[in-house]
Structure formats: C-alpha cells, structure tokens
C-alpha cells in the first residue's frame, strides 16, 4: 500500500501539493512554541505599544504588519497575530485528528458489526445512522459543551463530542464494504471453519477494510477541523486565551470593515488545511480504490 501511495504522489501533482501542505501544517502544529519563540512573540502578551492610541486599532497599515509582527496584531489587545495563528494550528490540527480517530474507531466497529452480523443489529444500526444524520447536531454540541462540568478539559470534551457525532458516516461506508466482503470466499471459509466474529473481524475483514478506512478518514479530517472552528466561531470551542482559528475568525467579523487582515490570516490557514486534506484524500482514493478513479 505505501508503494501505491508513493506512486500516486509521483503521478498526481495535486495530491502531492496536498500532502506537502498537510505535512507543513502538521510540522507547524508540533513545533508551534519553537516557531513563535523564533518570531519573538507569544500569543498571550498584551502590547498596547503596537496599537494606535487614538482608536485601539493596530498601528500602521494592513493590521500592523511589520518586521516585528509578521501578520500584524489584534485590535484592542496588541497580541501578535502570527503567534495566534501558529498556536491555533495546534488546536485545530490536534482536535481534528484526534476526533477523527474517535469517529473512525466507533464507525468501523459499529459498521463492521452491522454488516457482518446482519439481522437486528444491522437494522438498529442502519436506523440509528438515519436518526443521527437527521439530528441538528450543532445544537447538541453547543448544549453538551455547556452542560459538561468545568473540570473536564475543554479540548478533550471537543474531541469526544466531535468524534462521537462523526461515526454514522463512517459506519455507513464500512457496513457497505463489509457486506461485499462477507460474500467473498475467504470470509465464508473462515466462518465455516468456526472462527468467532471478533477473530474474523481482526484477521479477515480489517486487513481488507484498511484502504477505504484510510481514505474516508483523510477525507473526514477537514470536516472535523471545520466543526471545531465552527464551534469556536459560535463561542463554545476551546476556552480563551488558547488560540483557535474559529474564534479569531468570529472576532474578525466585527472588524472586517477596518482590519480585514484579522480575517485573512486565520481564514487562509483554515482554508489551506482543509484544502490540503481534501486533495490529498482525493489522491489517496484514486490510488487505493481504482473503481472510483475518475480523475
């Protein structure tokens, strides 16, 4: 499989660009503190010297972009926007990846169980998936993040909540795949030899499910990142002062007329990340699932 991916990257320039973007952003997320140390500002320190004393807006043009503040500063606080965006990467990237892992684990277990066991299990799962897809889940996420006791760390809560509401889509795909695999000889053979469901799942199903799982996981990371940003946008994401792209963008709304840079930098970061995962995921799908190869 890795060989197939490498071949795909060599052939598909878009997917390569996506892979590079994702890698760079992952790198930024991991080394955020190091990067901001090099740049000379942390995302928390207030600096009224960087503001125009008459209005509290960033001093200088384009939101205060200068050699000192690479992306300018926030109005009213003077905090460094570069540091905020870089540290926001960490928030988005980790919550996005971790919640995807949660959804994938849940989705694969439930989907495979439904497809393999069939009968009532299958009926209940299919129905539950329908119910979930019909849920106004954004409202529930908001409510849950308000209900949860403050002792639970907010990032952990976000990972669990975003991850939990993501399983139905994955379960659907895994179920369909399992149904086709079930008809195949090697699975039927294992069953007639008396293997238990868990054994069949681990040794026969899972190895054959890897490819679609990886594709669907990669393609669902952007929507998880988008959800985290949306929750932060609506004011129920990670708590202040931890930087988050969604919150920055939401704050930028009121400043869009006077200080558009406040919107553009976090917005660009968010867009690049979701774009990277999407094109890379498309490439992966083409490489691992030749049937859908339509590019």
């Amino acid at each position: 499989m890795p060989a197939a991916i490498l071949r795909m990257l060599r052939r598909d320039r878009w997917a390569l660009a996506g892979a590079v973007t994702v890698t760079v952003i992952g790198f930024v997320a991991v080394f955020a503190t190091l990067l901001t140390t090099i740049a000379g500002h942390d995302p928390y320190t207030y600096d009224s010297a960087a503001l125009d004393p008459a209005t509290g807006q960033p001093a200088g043009v384009l939101g205060g972009i200068s050699g000192d503040h690479w992306f300018g500063v926030e109005p009213l606080t003077g905090r460094d926007l570069f540091a905020i965006v870089v540290h926001g990467t960490r928030t988005s990237f980790f919550i996005g990846i971790a919640s995807t892992v949660v959804s994938v684990v849940l989705g694969v277990l439930v989907g495979a169980a439904a497809g393999y066991l069939g009968g009532w299990t299958d009926r209940i799962v299919t129905w539950a998936v329908d119910v979930f897809l019909g849920f106004p889940y954004l409202v529930f996420m908001i409510a849950i993040s308000m209900v949860a006791p403050p002792e639970i760390p907010k990032p952990l809560l976000l990972i669990v909540v975003i991850g939990f509401f993501g399983w139905p889509g994955i379960a659907r795909i895994v179920r369909a795949q399992t149904l086709t695999l079930k008809q195949r000889n090697f699975v039927a053979a294992a069953r007639t030899l008396g293997a238990g469901p868990w054994h069949v799942f681990r040794t026969e199903l899972l190895p054959n499910l890897w490819a679609p799982i990886i594709v669907v996981a990669t393609l669902s990371v952007p929507s998880r990142i988008g959800l985290e940003a949306a929750l932060s946008f609506l004011g129920v994401g990670v708590p202040v002062p931890t930087p988050s792209w969604g919150r920055s963008i939401s704050e930028a709304i009121q400043w869009v007329g006077t200080d558009p840079m406040l919107l553009i930098f976090p917005g660009l970061a968010l867009f690049l990340t979701t774009w990277g995962f999407n094109v890379f995921g498309d490439g992966l799908r083409d490489a691992l699932d030749p049937k859908s190869g339509v590019r």
Partner: peptide, 22 residues
Amino acid sequence: SVAGVSAPVYLVGLLGILVFGF
C-alpha cells in the same frame, strides 16, 4: 470545486462581505 468543498461558509461569507460589500 475542491476549493469550494474546503472553504467553511463563514469564511467565504465574510470574504464576500469584505470584497463586494465593503
């Protein structure tokens, strides 16, 4: 279309307001 799929609605909306509105 990949760009469209990747962009969150509030971002495109705000950019639209910024460019065409302001």
